[in-house]
Design a protein around this nucleic acid. Sequence first.
DNA 1: GTCTATAGTCGGATAGAC
DNA 2: GTCTATCCGACTATAGAC
Lengths: 219, 219
Amino acid sequence: MDDKETTNERLIQAGIEAFAANGFNGASTRMIAEKAGCNLAAIPYYFGGKEGLYLAVFERIAEFPNELLNPQIEAIRAFLKANERDPETALGLLKQLLSTMLELNCSHPAPHVQLITREQLNPSSAFDILYNKVIKREVNLISRLIAVITGEDNRRTTTLQAFILIGQVMMFHHGRKVIFRHLDLQDYSATDIGEIRQLITAWIDKALKPKQTDSQIRT
Amino acid sequence: MDDKETTNERLIQAGIEAFAANGFNGASTRMIAEKAGCNLAAIPYYFGGKEGLYLAVFERIAEFPNELLNPQIEAIRAFLKANERDPETALGLLKQLLSTMLELNCSHPAPHVQLITREQLNPSSAFDILYNKVIKREVNLISRLIAVITGEDNRRTTTLQAFILIGQVMMFHHGRKVIFRHLDLQDYSATDIGEIRQLITAWIDKALKPKQTDSQIRT
DNA sequence: GTCTATAGTCGGATAGAC
DNA sequence: GTCTATCCGACTATAGAC
């Protein structure tokens, strides 16, 4: 069915790029139709209008980040389901997940990501799709991992801590332009990302690692 | 000169609100003129056009956050200038600064803040004003405080750590809508903010506090 | 300086041929 | 399903009266 080359499909792809680059208001249907190599009238025909295309775009991309994060999400889910309570394992899973999120948001600046950012900042009708299909689960998983790591059982507390943690990672996406300007970068290099990952990882270790008087803590 | 009630002034105020709520494309000159209680033609007259008004708006607001943060920024500057190198004092200053930033961005969701966020995410001609007058100094101060606290003397490292730290705070602004949805809030209450501040503060303590294997060590 | 009126452009949606 | 042609509304900017 999805020949990947149907007009329908090309419009969605063009929409992703155009909305990501210019926002809903900034992207015109003419622009999108041209990018898709089809006629302007195809948008109302297939999607009922510009807004319909916008929603279709989000239905599509809502599945994208999960795909990349899926292996790790599955691992975490399995861990939590098994009701293991080993903090070290949980910490490892958490660091790995955040590391992937960093990669996803910074070194692969896919248009999807900017689109998602925009919608979070300025929710419209597409926000529900995004929240329910992408955000909710991830926040919950991180929150539960934190609970295992720290032993904190107040859900609200671990949720807020999850947001703090996510904020550390997302800063390098939201603040991308500021950071580039401040560090005189054109874009993140692999080295930059590695350095950031290392700093965040170290940070998490110090902040979350269960108090251990043990001297085996690696430096 | 600034009667606070000149047409010029009312347009800037109306512009702040309109651009903050709807973005540059989304805010129409009609809307702004109406909000300002003046004529549409006044915008080209005073500012040369919509874009000129947008720049004027940023010239104005670029001074706002500094005013609120000024006492603390001055204190930090004095501390750094005196070349004191006491980590505990630096840590206190840092926590206080971030606490104010949290307050500024979350419990006072002034339109200025959303405007600044938008421009950072999607830089236009006004980005320079913003970066030079607001962002640059703050990042540098935080970075230097971190250097004093941790003893790290690689400027690049402390800068990245500064961004991590800022990210923790800004998450509660950028992710506001997501967080409200996830925690079933209408807005942050004073209690919420207090709780967040406490968590961030504790986090900073653990992550930055000079290595001490014994919690009894205190200066 | 402030207004009305209007020019000129561009937006999204539609009708109807093919 | 895809196209052309067109409508209509909204936009920014300008001219010119007052």
